[in-house]
C-alpha cells in the first residue's frame, strides 16, 4: 500500500511537472516571438486568439498533422530515434529540480520528484547525452547541411560543457553538496545569501556557456539558418521536427531553471516577508527572467563565427572558470579555518 502511494505520488508529480514544462515550452515559443517582435518594432503573432495567445497550440496542431517525410537515402532507424534521444534528456533533467520547499498538501516531504544526492551531475550527464541525438540526426539525414550542423553541434557542446561544468564547481564548493535541494536550502534567508553575490564570475560564465550549450543565438552555429538551412534538423518534418524544437526549448528552460537554483536561490523568496508567495512561483519568476535574458541577447547580438566561438570557449571561458575555482577554493579554505 505504501509503495502504491509512493508510486502514485511520483506519477502525479511527474505529470504536473511535465505538464508545466511542456506548457512553458509552448509559451516560450510564443514569448520569444512576441518579445523579438517588440524589439524589432513589430507586433508578432496576433491572429490566433486574443493577441495571438493560442498560436503555440495552433503551431503544435499543425506540426502534429504534417506529413512525416523520411529521406530515401537516410538511415531510417537512427533517423527515427535521434529526435527521441534529443528530447528525453532535455525533459528528464526536471526530475531533480526542486520546485518548492514542501508539498504538504499531498503528504510529501520535499518539493522535488527525486532528491538525488548527485542531482547536479545527473543533469549534466543527461545534457551531454542529448548531443547524441543531434549528432546522429545530422549523420542519419544523409545531407551535407545536417551533417555539418551535427558536427558543429558536437564540437560546440563538448567545448562548452567543460566551461558549464567548471563554472558550477564554485557553487558546489560553497554549498558542499551535489543535491539541488540542499544547494537551494543553503541560500535560504534573503537575496544576500544567494550564490550570485559570492560567485558573480561563475554566474556570467555559466550563462554564456548555457547559451552556447543550448545552441541559442549568438552561438547557434549548429542551426545557423543563413548558412546551414536549419542545421541538423534540415531533413526533419512534422512531429519529429517538433521533438527537436521541444528539446531545444526544454533545454533552455532546464538551464535557466538550473541557473536560478544554483545562483538565484531557486524557490527561496528574495526577502523574508515575501515568503507568503509559494516557492514554485519564485522559481518560475527567476527562470522566466533568465529566459527573457536569452531572448534579449538573441535580439541584440549577431552570430559569432565558429572559430571565434571555439577560441572564446577554450581560451577565455575555461581559464576564467579555472581561476574562479582556484580563488573560491582558497576562500572557502580560509573561511572554514
Amino acid at each position: 500500500m505504501e509503495l502504491a502511494m509512493t508510486v502514485g505520488l511520483a506519477v502525479f508529480q511527474i505529470a504536473i511537472v511535465m505538464g508545466v514544462v511542456l506548457l512553458s515550452v509552448a509559451y516560450m515559443t510564443y514569448a520569444e516571438r512576441k518579445v523579438l517582435s517588440f524589439m524589432q518594432d513589430r507586433l508578432g503573432p496576433m491572429e490566433v486568439g486574443p493577441y495571438g495567445l493560442l498560436q503555440p497550440i495552433a503551431d503544435g496542431l499543425k506540426l502534429f498533422f504534417k506529413e512525416d517525410i523520411i529521406p530515401s537515402s537516410a538511415n531510417k532507424l537512427i533517423f527515427a530515434i535521434a529526435p527521441i534521444i534529443c528530447l528525453v534528456p532535455a525533459l528528464i533533467g526536471f526530475a531533480v529540480m526542486p520546485y518548492n520547499e514542501t508539498y504538504a498538501a499531498f503528504g510529501g516531504e520535499a518539493g522535488v520528484i527525486s532528491d538525488l544526492n548527485v542531482g547536479l551531475l545527473y543533469i549534466l550527464a543527461f545534457a551531454s547525452v542529448g548531443t547524441y541525438g543531434v549528432i546522429l540526426a545530422g549523420w542519419s539525414s544523409n545531407s551535407k547541411y545536417a551533417m555539418l550542423g551535427g558536427l558543429r553541434c558536437g564540437a560546440q557542446i563538448i567545448s562548452y560543457e567543460l566551461a558549464l561544468g567548471l563554472s558550477i564547481v564554485g557553487v558546489l564548493l560553497l554549498s558542499g553538496s551535489l543535491s539541488l535541494r540542499e544547494i537551494t536550502m543553503a541560500q535560504d534567508g534573503g537575496f544576500w545569501h544567494w550564490n550570485i553575490l559570492l560567485q558573480p564570475v561563475a554566474f556570467v560564465t555559466y550563462v554564456i556557456s548555457a547559451v552556447a550549450e543550448t545552441n541559442r543565438l549568438p552561438f547557434d552555429m549548429p542551426e545557423a539558418e543563413s548558412e546551414l538551412v536549419a542545421g541538423f534538423f534540415t531533413e526533419y518534418t512534422g512531429m519529429r521536427f517538433a521533438f527537436f524544437f521541444l528539446a531545444e526549448y526544454a533545454n533552455m528552460i532546464l538551464v535557466c531553471c538550473l541557473a536560478s537554483v544554483l545562483f538565484l536561490g531557486g524557490y527561496e523568496a528574495p526577502m523574508e516577508f515575501l515568503n507568503f508567495i509559494p516557492g514554485f512561483i519564485w522559481l518560475a519568476i527567476k527562470t522566466w527572467a533568465l529566459l527573457f535574458f536569452f531572448i534579449w541577447i538573441r535580439g541584440t547580438f549577431p552570430r559569432v563565427r565558429f572559430d571565434q566561438l571555439m577560441k572564446f570557449g577554450w581560451k577565455v571561458l575555461i581559464p576564467i572558470t579555472l581561476a574562479n575555482i582556484l580563488f573560491t577554493a582558497l576562500g572557502v579554505y580560509i573561511y572554514n579555518n
Partner: peptide, 11 residues
Amino acid sequence: YAGAILVLYLF
C-alpha cells in the same frame, strides 16, 4: 564515457 569519449568516437 557517454558524454565525452563516445561522442568523440562518433565524431
